[in-house]
Design a protein around this nucleic acid. Structure first.
Lengths: 118, 118
DNA sequence: TCCTTAGTTCAAAATTCATTGAACTATTGT
DNA sequence: ACAATAGTTCAATGAATTTTGAACTAAGGA
Protein backbone atom coordinates (compact mmCIF):
# COMPACT_ATOMS: atom_id res chain seq x y z
CA UNK A 1 0.00 0.00 0.00
CA UNK A 2 1.37 3.36 -1.02
CA UNK A 3 0.04 6.86 -0.62
CA UNK A 4 -0.33 9.32 -3.52
CA UNK A 5 2.65 11.61 -4.12
CA UNK A 6 3.01 14.13 -6.94
CA UNK A 7 5.62 13.34 -9.59
CA UNK A 8 8.73 15.48 -9.24
CA UNK A 9 7.84 17.65 -12.22
CA UNK A 10 4.36 18.27 -10.86
CA UNK A 11 5.64 19.92 -7.71
CA UNK A 12 4.48 23.52 -7.88
CA UNK A 13 6.54 26.34 -6.45
CA UNK A 14 3.65 28.43 -5.25
CA UNK A 15 2.04 25.40 -3.70
CA UNK A 16 5.24 24.48 -1.87
CA UNK A 17 5.58 28.01 -0.56
CA UNK A 18 1.94 28.15 0.48
CA UNK A 19 2.23 24.86 2.32
CA UNK A 20 5.42 25.97 4.08
CA UNK A 21 3.72 29.22 4.99
CA UNK A 22 1.85 27.61 7.84
CA UNK A 23 3.69 27.67 11.19
CA UNK A 24 2.70 24.13 12.15
CA UNK A 25 3.90 22.72 8.84
CA UNK A 26 7.07 24.76 8.91
CA UNK A 27 7.75 23.37 12.38
CA UNK A 28 7.21 19.85 11.03
CA UNK A 29 9.70 20.47 8.25
CA UNK A 30 12.20 21.98 10.65
CA UNK A 31 11.99 18.91 12.84
CA UNK A 32 12.29 16.56 9.88
CA UNK A 33 15.38 18.46 8.81
CA UNK A 34 16.89 18.27 12.28
CA UNK A 35 16.59 14.48 12.11
CA UNK A 36 17.32 14.12 8.44
CA UNK A 37 17.97 10.50 7.49
CA UNK A 38 15.80 9.22 10.32
CA UNK A 39 12.25 8.56 9.13
CA UNK A 40 9.74 9.83 11.65
CA UNK A 41 6.21 8.71 12.28
CA UNK A 42 3.23 10.91 12.93
CA UNK A 43 3.15 10.50 16.68
CA UNK A 44 6.51 12.21 16.99
CA UNK A 45 4.84 15.47 16.06
CA UNK A 46 2.08 15.35 18.62
CA UNK A 47 3.56 18.38 20.38
CA UNK A 48 2.43 20.40 17.37
CA UNK A 49 -1.23 19.48 17.35
CA UNK A 50 -3.86 16.82 17.74
CA UNK A 51 -3.59 13.53 15.92
CA UNK A 52 -6.31 14.55 13.51
CA UNK A 53 -4.80 17.92 12.86
CA UNK A 54 -1.37 16.44 12.19
CA UNK A 55 -2.85 13.97 9.78
CA UNK A 56 -4.25 16.95 7.91
CA UNK A 57 -0.99 18.91 7.85
CA UNK A 58 1.12 15.88 6.96
CA UNK A 59 -1.19 15.15 4.06
CA UNK A 60 -0.77 18.71 2.82
CA UNK A 61 3.00 18.39 2.95
CA UNK A 62 2.90 15.10 1.09
CA UNK A 63 0.46 16.33 -1.55
CA UNK A 64 2.61 19.38 -2.19
CA UNK A 65 5.68 17.19 -2.68
CA UNK A 66 7.52 18.41 0.39
CA UNK A 67 7.56 15.07 2.18
CA UNK A 68 7.48 11.42 1.31
CA UNK A 69 5.32 9.05 3.35
CA UNK A 70 6.02 5.37 3.38
CA UNK A 71 3.52 2.97 4.87
CA UNK A 72 5.22 0.43 7.11
CA UNK A 73 2.91 -1.78 9.05
CA UNK A 74 0.65 0.41 11.09
CA UNK A 75 2.81 3.48 10.97
CA UNK A 76 3.83 5.99 8.29
CA UNK A 77 7.43 6.91 7.96
CA UNK A 78 7.86 10.50 6.91
CA UNK A 79 10.93 11.98 5.30
CA UNK A 80 11.79 15.22 3.57
CA UNK A 81 11.65 14.90 -0.18
CA UNK A 82 14.99 16.59 -0.48
CA UNK A 83 16.19 14.98 -3.70
CA UNK A 84 13.26 16.18 -5.75
CA UNK A 85 12.98 19.56 -4.08
CA UNK A 86 16.67 20.29 -4.57
CA UNK A 87 16.48 19.28 -8.21
CA UNK A 88 13.45 21.37 -8.88
CA UNK A 89 14.09 24.41 -6.68
CA UNK A 90 17.83 24.54 -5.97
CA UNK A 91 18.71 26.09 -2.64
CA UNK A 92 15.13 26.69 -1.61
CA UNK A 93 14.79 23.97 1.00
CA UNK A 94 18.16 24.76 2.53
CA UNK A 95 17.45 28.44 2.90
CA UNK A 96 14.02 27.77 4.35
CA UNK A 97 15.41 25.29 6.86
CA UNK A 98 18.30 27.57 7.82
CA UNK A 99 15.86 30.40 8.46
CA UNK A 100 13.44 28.14 10.32
CA UNK A 101 16.14 26.81 12.63
CA UNK A 102 16.53 30.12 14.40
CA UNK A 103 12.90 31.11 14.32
CA UNK A 104 11.82 31.34 17.93
CA UNK A 105 8.26 32.15 16.93
CA UNK A 106 7.78 28.67 15.51
CA UNK A 107 6.21 25.97 17.71
CA UNK A 108 8.81 23.44 18.75
CA UNK A 109 8.71 19.67 18.78
CA UNK A 110 9.86 18.32 22.12
CA UNK A 111 8.94 21.51 23.92
CA UNK A 112 7.29 19.49 26.68
CA UNK A 113 10.32 17.37 27.41
CA UNK A 114 11.52 17.30 30.98
CA UNK A 115 15.18 17.71 31.81
CA UNK A 116 15.83 14.67 34.00
CA UNK A 117 18.81 16.40 35.59
CA UNK A 118 16.66 19.13 37.10
CA UNK B 1 3.59 60.56 3.61
CA UNK B 2 4.93 57.05 4.13
CA UNK B 3 3.23 53.70 4.27
CA UNK B 4 3.67 51.25 7.16
CA UNK B 5 6.42 48.66 6.72
CA UNK B 6 7.50 46.08 9.30
CA UNK B 7 10.94 46.57 10.84
CA UNK B 8 13.51 44.15 9.46
CA UNK B 9 13.52 42.02 12.61
CA UNK B 10 9.75 41.76 12.55
CA UNK B 11 9.68 40.05 9.20
CA UNK B 12 8.34 36.57 9.83
CA UNK B 13 9.49 33.58 7.83
CA UNK B 14 6.17 31.79 7.75
CA UNK B 15 4.41 34.99 6.80
CA UNK B 16 6.83 35.65 3.95
CA UNK B 17 6.36 32.11 2.67
CA UNK B 18 2.59 32.34 2.98
CA UNK B 19 2.53 35.61 1.09
CA UNK B 20 4.79 34.23 -1.65
CA UNK B 21 2.58 31.17 -1.84
CA UNK B 22 -0.01 33.02 -3.88
CA UNK B 23 0.52 32.83 -7.66
CA UNK B 24 -0.41 36.47 -8.28
CA UNK B 25 1.99 37.70 -5.63
CA UNK B 26 4.73 35.36 -6.77
CA UNK B 27 4.28 36.74 -10.29
CA UNK B 28 4.59 40.28 -8.91
CA UNK B 29 7.83 39.37 -7.15
CA UNK B 30 9.17 37.68 -10.25
CA UNK B 31 8.50 40.77 -12.30
CA UNK B 32 10.03 43.05 -9.67
CA UNK B 33 13.11 40.84 -9.72
CA UNK B 34 13.32 40.96 -13.51
CA UNK B 35 13.45 44.76 -13.30
CA UNK B 36 15.45 44.99 -10.13
CA UNK B 37 16.73 48.49 -9.53
CA UNK B 38 13.85 50.03 -11.44
CA UNK B 39 11.01 51.00 -9.09
CA UNK B 40 7.66 50.03 -10.55
CA UNK B 41 4.27 51.49 -9.91
CA UNK B 42 1.05 49.57 -9.41
CA UNK B 43 -0.30 50.06 -12.90
CA UNK B 44 2.55 48.05 -14.37
CA UNK B 45 1.02 44.95 -12.85
CA UNK B 46 -2.44 45.36 -14.29
CA UNK B 47 -1.96 42.23 -16.39
CA UNK B 48 -2.15 40.28 -13.15
CA UNK B 49 -5.48 41.52 -11.86
CA UNK B 50 -7.81 44.43 -11.34
CA UNK B 51 -6.60 47.66 -9.79
CA UNK B 52 -8.40 46.87 -6.55
CA UNK B 53 -7.07 43.36 -6.41
CA UNK B 54 -3.51 44.49 -7.03
CA UNK B 55 -3.80 47.07 -4.31
CA UNK B 56 -4.72 44.21 -1.99
CA UNK B 57 -1.86 41.93 -3.05
CA UNK B 58 0.71 44.72 -3.03
CA UNK B 59 -0.34 45.65 0.49
CA UNK B 60 0.15 42.03 1.57
CA UNK B 61 3.64 42.00 0.11
CA UNK B 62 4.51 45.26 1.82
CA UNK B 63 3.05 44.23 5.17
CA UNK B 64 4.98 40.97 5.07
CA UNK B 65 8.22 42.85 4.42
CA UNK B 66 8.75 41.51 0.92
CA UNK B 67 8.48 44.86 -0.83
CA UNK B 68 9.05 48.48 -0.04
CA UNK B 69 6.56 51.07 -1.24
CA UNK B 70 7.53 54.69 -1.58
CA UNK B 71 4.91 57.35 -2.15
CA UNK B 72 5.96 59.75 -4.89
CA UNK B 73 3.33 62.21 -5.95
CA UNK B 74 0.30 60.26 -7.03
CA UNK B 75 2.07 56.98 -7.60
CA UNK B 76 3.71 54.35 -5.40
CA UNK B 77 7.10 53.08 -6.33
CA UNK B 78 7.52 49.46 -5.43
CA UNK B 79 10.82 47.65 -4.99
CA UNK B 80 11.90 44.33 -3.61
CA UNK B 81 13.12 44.60 -0.06
CA UNK B 82 16.18 42.59 -0.92
CA UNK B 83 18.58 44.03 1.65
CA UNK B 84 16.45 43.08 4.62
CA UNK B 85 15.29 39.78 3.21
CA UNK B 86 18.82 38.69 2.39
CA UNK B 87 20.01 39.66 5.85
CA UNK B 88 17.22 37.87 7.58
CA UNK B 89 16.77 34.81 5.35
CA UNK B 90 20.00 34.34 3.38
CA UNK B 91 19.50 32.76 -0.02
CA UNK B 92 15.75 32.52 0.27
CA UNK B 93 14.78 35.29 -2.10
CA UNK B 94 17.33 34.22 -4.71
CA UNK B 95 16.17 30.62 -4.73
CA UNK B 96 12.53 31.64 -4.91
CA UNK B 97 13.19 34.01 -7.78
CA UNK B 98 15.33 31.49 -9.64
CA UNK B 99 12.57 28.92 -9.35
CA UNK B 100 9.87 31.42 -10.28
CA UNK B 101 11.70 32.54 -13.42
CA UNK B 102 11.12 29.24 -15.15
CA UNK B 103 7.67 28.60 -13.78
CA UNK B 104 5.37 28.51 -16.78
CA UNK B 105 2.33 28.02 -14.57
CA UNK B 106 2.70 31.50 -13.14
CA UNK B 107 0.73 34.37 -14.68
CA UNK B 108 3.01 36.69 -16.63
CA UNK B 109 3.28 40.45 -16.69
CA UNK B 110 3.31 41.75 -20.26
CA UNK B 111 1.54 38.69 -21.57
CA UNK B 112 -0.75 40.91 -23.61
CA UNK B 113 2.03 42.78 -25.39
CA UNK B 114 1.97 42.84 -29.16
CA UNK B 115 5.06 42.08 -31.15
CA UNK B 116 5.29 45.10 -33.46
CA UNK B 117 7.35 43.14 -35.98
CA UNK B 118 4.54 40.70 -36.69
C1' DT C 1 -10.69 75.76 -10.49
C1' DC C 2 -11.83 71.61 -12.79
C1' DC C 3 -10.68 67.38 -14.65
C1' DT C 4 -7.88 63.40 -14.83
C1' DT C 5 -4.87 59.97 -13.11
C1' DA C 6 -3.15 56.75 -9.37
C1' DG C 7 -4.26 54.29 -5.99
C1' DT C 8 -6.98 53.21 -1.50
C1' DT C 9 -10.87 51.90 1.43
C1' DC C 10 -15.07 49.69 2.39
C1' DA C 11 -18.59 46.25 2.53
C1' DA C 12 -20.30 42.10 0.53
C1' DA C 13 -19.82 37.58 -1.55
C1' DA C 14 -17.41 33.52 -2.54
C1' DT C 15 -13.96 30.55 -1.43
C1' DT C 16 -10.57 28.23 0.93
C1' DC C 17 -8.29 26.76 5.19
C1' DA C 18 -7.58 25.06 9.92
C1' DT C 19 -9.36 22.68 13.76
C1' DT C 20 -12.25 19.43 16.26
C1' DG C 21 -14.53 15.02 17.77
C1' DA C 22 -16.57 10.85 16.44
C1' DA C 23 -16.36 6.98 13.77
C1' DC C 24 -13.60 4.24 10.98
C1' DT C 25 -9.62 0.97 8.80
C1' DA C 26 -5.76 -1.69 9.12
C1' DT C 27 -2.01 -3.91 11.41
C1' DT C 28 0.18 -5.96 15.32
C1' DG C 29 0.54 -8.56 19.64
C1' DT C 30 -1.58 -11.83 22.95
C1' DA D 1 -10.34 -14.19 17.95
C1' DC D 2 -9.63 -10.02 20.74
C1' DA D 3 -7.81 -5.94 22.07
C1' DA D 4 -4.64 -2.24 21.40
C1' DT D 5 -2.14 0.90 18.45
C1' DA D 6 -1.41 4.13 14.39
C1' DG D 7 -3.39 6.85 11.61
C1' DT D 8 -7.35 8.29 8.34
C1' DT D 9 -11.88 10.03 6.97
C1' DC D 10 -15.97 12.63 7.58
C1' DA D 11 -18.94 16.41 8.66
C1' DA D 12 -19.26 20.56 11.07
C1' DT D 13 -17.63 24.90 12.48
C1' DG D 14 -15.20 29.10 12.59
C1' DA D 15 -11.68 31.88 10.78
C1' DA D 16 -9.03 33.87 7.22
C1' DT D 17 -8.46 34.89 2.23
C1' DT D 18 -9.52 36.39 -2.30
C1' DT D 19 -12.23 38.96 -5.38
C1' DT D 20 -15.47 42.54 -6.85
C1' DG D 21 -17.61 47.17 -7.56
C1' DA D 22 -18.67 51.56 -5.77
C1' DA D 23 -17.17 55.36 -3.47
C1' DC D 24 -13.32 57.80 -1.95
C1' DT D 25 -8.61 60.71 -1.43
C1' DA D 26 -4.80 63.09 -3.05
C1' DA D 27 -1.72 65.00 -6.49
C1' DG D 28 -0.96 66.97 -11.14
C1' DG D 29 -2.06 69.25 -15.38
C1' DA D 30 -4.99 72.35 -18.31
Amino acid sequence: MTLPHPAADQISLSNVLAVLGDPTRLAIVRYLASKEGVPLNCSQFLDLGSKTNLSYHLAKLREAGVTRTEVVGTSRLITLRRDDLDARFPGLLDSVIAAAVDDTALPAVGASEIDIRA
